[in-house]
Amino acid sequence: MFLINCPYCGERDQSEFVSGGEAHIARPKQPTELNDDQWAEFLFMRKNIKGVQFERWNHVHGCRKWFNVARDTSNDKIEKIYKMGEQPPKL
């Protein structure tokens, strides 16, 4: 059970949050221009790395805000939490 420091509410128990998978995958602005492979890349392909991974989390049982988390998947250490729209930190 992590402790997650919601950028809007402060530190809360993991049970208040849900994870929304990999961050920084923007929905294509013109999906109709993409061929099947390009669309599949957006739709299905996600990284699964050992090390620091950028993820989206939602404070679903709190302020309902989405934000980004840089988490080390090998030990679940949260390196950085930053708001939607912000650039991923260099780690």
Partner: peptide, 13 residues
């Protein structure tokens, strides 16, 4: 509700 919030906050702010 969650899905719509997700799109509003992250794709179409």
């Amino acid at each position: 509700m969650s899905k719509l919030e997700d799109y509003l906050q992250t794709e179409w702010p």
